[in-house]
Amino acid sequence: MNRPKNKEYKFPTHIDDYPTGPQYKAGFLPETNAGWRKVRPVVDHEACVFCLRCYLVCPDGTIFKEDGKIKIDLDYCKGCGVCAHECPKDAISMVKE
C-alpha cells in the first residue's frame, strides 16, 4: 500500500486495549484532513504534461500517479495550493469547496 488509508479506530474500553507504553502501528490514520480545506485542486488532464512537479512539492504527499495521470487523495489534501501555484502549465486550479 503506497499511502495509508483512513482506518476506523476502536476506542479502548479496557486498560488492556491500550498499547504497552506510547507505541502504535506506523501509518495508522483514524482521522482525515479533508475538513481543513476551503479550496480543492482540480486537475485539467488535457493541459497536464505529467511533469510531476506537483507530486514532488505537495507538503502532504496527497498527489499520486495512476494510469499515467495525476490523482489527488482528497481525504488528506489540505488545499494549500502549492501544486497549482507550482504547475508550469497552469493545469491545476483551486476551486471553492
Binding site: P12, I15, Y18, T20, G21, P22, Q23, Y24, K25, A26, G27, F28
Partner: peptide
Amino acid sequence: EPKNLAFSSKPDDNTEFKYQQNQ
C-alpha cells in the same frame, strides 16, 4: 512491524497511560 514510538497523547488518553505505568 513498523511503529511510531514516544507519541503525544491528548487528555483523553494521558491518564490511562499513566495508570498503566503505575500498575
